[in-house]
Every structure is written in C-alpha cells, then in structure tokens.
Amino acid sequence: MTIRLRGHHLLCLLGYRGMGYSDEFCVNMTAIYETLRTKPETEVEIITGPDDICRAYPPDKTYHCEGTVYGLDERILAKLGLAPHERSSWQDMCSRIAEKIVPEDIARLCTTCPWEKYGVCREGVGFLIEGRPLPKAGG
C-alpha cells in the first residue's frame, strides 16, 4: 500500500486530531492518519496536486486543493529537501521532518492555513523532535 501525499499534508498529518471539513473528510483523514501512525513502514509517495487526503474534500465547500496551496507544497518540500515522485516510508518522512523543521516553522510556512491557529501541527512537529509518538486521532 502506498499513500500519495502532497507537500503540505506531510505537516498537516502531524497535527491531525480528528477535526476536519466534514464527516466524510474526517473518516478519510482518520483512516490515513491511523494507518501511518500504527504502520510507520507504510510507503508514502510525494505528488503534485490533489492527493489521497484531498479526494474526500467536501463538494459543498470552496475547493482549495488547487491554486494557492501549490506554493505551500513547494515551500515545505524545499525545506524538507523532497521532490514529487519521491517515495519513502512514513517513518523516514517523519525522521526527515524532525531533522529539518522546528515547531516555529509552522507559523512561517503555514500562514494561510485555517488550522494553524490551533497549534496542533507545531505540537506534532515537537512530538517528532522529542521522539514521542503521535496521539490517536481525536485524542
């Protein structure tokens, strides 16, 4: 099994705590998050554009999986030294994040994100740096 992720979702997953845009979105995001959290050997492929998380974005909301988020993806991938089509385990991706990102980077990188204000992504980066596991979704 390979999970396809765009650049900024590498950081979004670290802060996922069960909140989302709709019930269907949360079901999909929780499934992806829990797979990666409990099976860190799962392969992740970096892609450009809408990914496995975007596929459940609610049709009644303003679709943001295209457009300005591409710049966010590019900034995060550049900071991590990753490029589209690269594949690695989730565990290796998390190790790279812990080496290249500090919690304070979230405020600088994710200025347009509506979830940034909750501080959960900063917290998730901190967990990786400290070698702590990510919490169960919703926990």
Rank of each mutant, 00 (worst) to 15 (best):
P59H: 12
S95R: 15
Y16D: 05
E104Y: 00
D60P: 05
K117Y: 07
I47D: 03
S95K: 15
W90S: 05
S95N: 11
G15L: 06
Q91K: 14
E66R: 11
I47A: 04
K61H: 14
P40S: 12
C94W: 01
P135S: 07
G18N: 09
I106H: 01
G119E: 09
D51R: 12
P133T: 09
V44I: 15
L82W: 11
T112V: 14
E66N: 07
E34M: 09
E130S: 10
V120G: 05
G131L: 06
L72Q: 13
V27C: 02
F25Q: 09
S89H: 03
V27I: 13
M93L: 15
R122L: 00
R108A: 07
L72G: 03
T48F: 11
E116T: 15
T48D: 10
V69E: 06
I76A: 00
H9I: 08
S95C: 13
Y70T: 13
T42K: 09
R37H: 07
M19D: 04
R55L: 13
C110R: 02
I76P: 02
T62Q: 14
K100A: 11
L5M: 04
V69L: 13
Y118T: 14
F25K: 08
L128S: 02
R132K: 15
Y57C: 11
M1G: 04
D23F: 06
M19T: 05
L82M: 12
M1P: 02
V102H: 00
G138M: 14
G139H: 12
P114D: 13
R37G: 03
K79Y: 00
D92T: 10
E104R: 05
S22T: 04
R122N: 03
V125Q: 01
P133Y: 07
D52E: 14
P84R: 05
C94K: 03
C121A: 08
S89W: 02
D52K: 13
V44W: 05
T48S: 14
Y21T: 02
T48H: 12
E43L: 13
T111W: 10
P114K: 14
E104P: 02
V125A: 04
K61S: 08
L77E: 01
C113I: 01
I3Q: 06
A83C: 10
L72H: 09
K117F: 09
P59Q: 15
T62W: 11
V44K: 07
P58M: 11
K117M: 10
R55N: 07
G67E: 10
K117S: 08
L11M: 01
Y118C: 10
C54W: 11
E43P: 03
D23M: 06
K39I: 05
Y16C: 06
P103V: 11
C65W: 11
P103H: 12
E41V: 12
V69D: 05
N28W: 06
D23L: 06
R108N: 04
I129G: 00
T30I: 09
E74D: 15
Y21L: 08
L134V: 07
S22V: 06
Y21N: 04
E24G: 06
T111H: 12
I129W: 00
F25N: 11
P59S: 13
G18K: 09
R37N: 10
P50C: 10
P59W: 15
